[in-house]
Amino acid sequence: MMEGWLSAEEAQAVWLSLSVATRSVLVSLGPAVLVAWLLVRGRFPGRFLLDALVHLPLVVPPVVVGWALLMLFGVRGPIGAPLEEWFGIRLVFTSDAVVLATAVMGFPLIVRAVRLGLESVDEGLEAAARTLGAGRWDVFVTITLPLMLPGILAGAVVAFAAGLGEFGAVITFASNVPGETQTLPLAIYTATQTPGGEATAARLAGISFALALGGLMLAELIARRMHRWLGRG
């Protein structure tokens, strides 16, 4: 369908962006729920520091995040070297690297939304569930998690929409390889740097715009449905 008016390379960029954004959200969700839980319910000395660390990607320039990832996961980095040596995994300049960079950048967005979701859960309901015979983990799975679902979904959609457009961290850590790491914003950037690329840039920008708008509207729709489902609407 897209191939009709997009070049193969353009279509690939759109597809890669969608795939990367989806994968980065899926990778982040579990850790984000855990971190949000620690931040809201945890009582440990390093909580303040953890809070700051999680929010770092929001305030540090994305290029710096990309550089830090390059240092850590690069072929000679403290994580990258053993990864390659023991498992033969090389991240840099692959689409997995794009996913990792996008996930790190989107992580604070998901954590913030999940945290709001968790804070809205009435601890009295959890206490009631425990007096009815449910253990801590049972309560988390059957009461807490379903009740914070609106927050989790909202975070996922926002991180997905933002992930479609991650630029600085991606280009620094994963570079700009067409078909491998060239996502939508990277393709738009390349097009604007190429003589005669104005039409390509306009088409891709239009798609970016539509995807972001669609994502935000979907988030709102889901939020409304969920609130009605939970009887809060």
Partner: peptide, 30 residues
């Protein structure tokens, strides 16, 4: 003893029904 092992069910002033479960789901929870 943690609450789930005491088997002392509580009826709270505000009911504290689970909003995401039906009445039957609430009744069958315990």
């Amino acid at each position: 003893l943690p609450p789930e092992r005491r088997r002392c069910a509580v009826v709270f002033q505000e009911g504290r029904l689970f909003p995401h479960l039906s009445v039957e789901g609430n009744l069958r929870y315990g």
